[in-house]
Nucleic acid binder design. Sequence first.
DNA 1: AAATCGGATTGGTTGCGATTGATCTTATGG
DNA 2: CCATAAGATCAATCGCAACCAATCCGATTT
Lengths: 235, 235
Amino acid sequence: MEEGSAQDRLRRFIEGGGYGVGDRLPPERQLIAELGMTRTALRKGLEALEREGAIWRHVGKGTFVAGVASEVAAMEDTGEAQPPAIPAPLMDLGRQITPLRMMRARLCIEPAIAREAAANASTEAITRVRLAMERANAATSWRDYEAQDDLFHRAIAEATDNPMLLAVFDQMNQVRRVVIWGNLERESARPAHDHSSFGEHTAVTNAIAERNPAAAYEEMRMHLRSVSRRLFDEE
Amino acid sequence: MEEGSAQDRLRRFIEGGGYGVGDRLPPERQLIAELGMTRTALRKGLEALEREGAIWRHVGKGTFVAGVASEVAAMEDTGEAQPPAIPAPLMDLGRQITPLRMMRARLCIEPAIAREAAANASTEAITRVRLAMERANAATSWRDYEAQDDLFHRAIAEATDNPMLLAVFDQMNQVRRVVIWGNLERESARPAHDHSSFGEHTAVTNAIAERNPAAAYEEMRMHLRSVSRRLFDEE
DNA sequence: AAATCGGATTGGTTGCGATTGATCTTATGG
DNA sequence: CCATAAGATCAATCGCAACCAATCCGATTT
């Protein structure tokens, strides 16, 4: 029979088998038959190949031949196995930015926007903010809440009466949608958003309505920190 | 046969299928036949597209490609939320924004960025900030100073180690170049920028180098207020 | 003409079984 | 005693199908 280490035989099998980047290899239980080796030996070889970045494996999906290193990282993040191929300009940003960085950016910008809103909001703008808040609080599904929450924050950006700040907010928001939220969230298991957001939204809205910039800043910061806590630590 | 992830194939189908904003896509059960993919895979792609705001779906209605026009209609019909508008062309923004609003926006954002920079700057980043500061201080002509000052502020945005914040800064900076500066303007041969900026730049840089976020915030705010005062005479 | 009802359509959700990599247990041999 | 082989088991994923809920459309009724 053929000779060489398990790793070598595997490598020959892959390179000589016409497998290209992204292709899926036969499952382990089939490979041990084709290569005539034991499963432990096979897996030892696979582990070696995985360490050097030649392949990529995942439970329930299979074993895939990997491409460049960066590609591999991207795959691991998204759980998807494909090249980027996103046309839009901001999309690239979305792939570069980690959820944590996104959150830091929001914590950096949005409280300042809330303060500016409190300083400059017209009474109509305040009404719109309050309306958006009520819609967010009235949301039934998680998806709906997410969307309404977006609109609430945007209403605040509008209330600054400053198109530049609104544009900044929109840019950030658009990138946020593309950010790969990795493992966090999306389990859709209704965190029952315990209405801690409810109170926070009201606090922010009231601070703006009372034209209290410092309070608006602080309440928005609290709200975002609470969101951040829900996303990251806490389990 | 076609390749790529479900999301990519879907995107190609929409963009290459002559679907315009607001158009309705075929129902899922038909799409899986046309695209030859599983419903699970299809829905996975649809979810991704929805999250980045490319489409919009609703039970009993169907799946629609998103856009500004359909947004309003959808909003009126269902009262539900939809992806907010795509960032407006920067040129138009430049015409809408008054110099005063631009300045307020800078005062709103840049101190926060400076604070974030102080908290996150690597030693290399600090070096680059210091270098940019020295170049700005060494500028001889007003034009040169303006350009170097831009780079100084951008170096700070870079020092945040957050691509999102850098993108926000760039966007704002881009608009700033287009803003009509009306009367208050540059030709005024800026009398040797009295070196008040010199001290301010140094103060900001030092605060960042000392990793003192609060000081960085305050110094940057002072600097911008000083710039503002010079522009508008009086605040 | 307006209101109401029922079926058809459509996105959303759930449960089951199969596949597959990961891990544990047991047996074998040196 | 240790390493390996062999098998069982676990956990993640996927495909499939049925079912649910919102919507739409047309017929029927009033």
